[in-house]
Amino acid sequence: MSDRSQRRRDLTRQEIKQTARNQLVTGGPNAISLRAIARDMGITAPALYRYYPALDSLILELCTDLYTDLRVACEVVRDQVAPEDHEGRLLVMVREFRRWVLSHPAESTVIFGPPLPGVDQFHQQCQDLSHAGVQFGQIFIDPMLALYHQGRLPVGKAIVDAHDHAHGDVPPEVYTYFLLKWTQFYGIIMAEAFGHLSWAVADAEPLFEAEVTAFTESLIR
């Protein structure tokens, strides 16, 4: 395949994914279909199948793009904080994570809600260090690891071996701490995003900020 043909193919794949994302935003996850994408692009379904033979292969790449978008958004705010301020970098990324999820409800439903075809496959590939999901998690692990080396991370007993989860350079106790804090932040963000706190509060931000404060107060000074 010539370079020109490859570029044309890459551009078409990008257009297919953007069309799928448009369908997602306007109609929700169930609105995504290869036939609907072909119709919106003005091509035949068989022509589309040359790029994505099944919906799950398209969803798999869409998940990769969405995780990359989320990671980049967090990195942008992180890089506005001094590199030596590991605590500050963590906090702005956690807040950006919440902001992105709340401002992208349809996209968040795909990557954090009930799995669509292709999402399970995406999660099963998280053993690869180049995987978009692993790279997203790594930007949170890195400052935690730096705090650990400074003696500031109140790690406890290791219950998860990082070597089994594509983080071989991270001590198991640090990986355990990361998972515990991740599930706390993740839980409150997703509960808010999917409306599971609406019965209790009109604004869940104070609950989220209380979790942020609890994290900062737990660090060793």
Rank of each mutant, 00 (worst) to 15 (best):
A47S: 11
G151V: 08
G195P: 05
D10W: 09
Q124L: 08
L11R: 04
V92I: 10
V92C: 03
D85V: 10
G195F: 11
L179C: 04
F185T: 08
D56H: 03
Q184E: 14
G42P: 01
D69E: 09
E107F: 07
V76Q: 13
Y186F: 15
A162Q: 03
Q150A: 04
A200V: 13
D142P: 11
C63D: 00
A146V: 12
I139R: 08
P172H: 00
L91T: 09
T68Y: 06
A200I: 14
P171S: 01
V94D: 00
A132P: 04
D40A: 05
T176D: 00
Q127T: 14
R152C: 02
D142K: 12
R50M: 11
C126N: 04
V201R: 05
E75T: 15
A191V: 07
T12E: 11
Y177E: 03
V92S: 00
E107N: 02
E96F: 08
I37M: 01
R71Q: 11
A106I: 07
V25I: 13
E107A: 01
H163P: 10
G133Q: 03
S2R: 02
R4C: 07
V119T: 01
I32D: 04
V25G: 07
V77Y: 09
A193R: 06
R7T: 02
F112D: 06
N30P: 10
Q6L: 10
G151I: 07
P171Q: 02
R35Q: 14
A20I: 06
L48A: 03
V72W: 12
P143V: 12
I139D: 02
I220Q: 15
P114N: 14
D65K: 09
D203S: 11
K157V: 08
I189M: 13
G27D: 11
R21A: 12
A38E: 13
H123P: 00
H104W: 12
G113Y: 05
